[in-house]
């Protein structure tokens, strides 16, 4: 175990940069976070999908921050404070984005309301109409 650890550290020092950025238990969380961060170099991809230098730096940063004990939301906050809201794929629910999040639900409810009140017969009426 110890040997493994020493080897790992030595290895990491030799191949310092760009080497494996996540050797912790947070692999899944790391993946989840990096899928939600948008790459600035190759805009249109997430950090997870990109192999650009920038993406690798951010991946390293995420591992470091996770080891520091930051949670997902705090990491997003950190990146947003540096790069702006654009960097995160999931827009937060605030005044700006209120319509974005609410409008689909509102229209869904309105549509359902219309369908079930205006277009569909109530049971009682059925008999009246038939005779």
């Amino acid at each position: 175990m110890k040997i493994k650890l020493v080897l790992f550290i030595v290895f990491n020092i030799i191949f310092n940069y760009n080497y494996v950025y996540s050797k912790n238990n947070n692999l899944d969380l790391h993946k989840q976070i990096s899928k939600n961060i948008r790459c600035i170099v190759c805009q249109g991809q997430s950090i997870d999908e990109s192999n650009s230098d920038f993406a690798i730096n951010i991946k390293n940063l995420i591992s470091a921050k996770l080891e520091e004990g930051l949670n997902e939301e705090e990491i997003y906050q950190f990146l947003k404070s540096r790069y702006g809201e654009w960097i995160v794929y999931k827009p937060e629910l605030n005044i700006n984005n209120f319509i974005l999040w609410i409008l689909p639900y509102a229209l869904f409810i309105a549509g359902g309301f219309y369908i079930f009140t205006k277009l569909i017969k109530k049971k009682k009426k059925i008999n009246i109409n038939r005779y």
Binding site: R38, S46, E85, I87, Y89, N96
Partner: peptide
């Protein structure tokens, strides 16, 4: 509003 946001997979998946 001159503010730039990204709407990506998490948004669509959630909705």
């Amino acid at each position: 509003n001159n503010s730039k946001i990204s709407v990506g997979p998490p948004f669509f998946n959630i909705l």
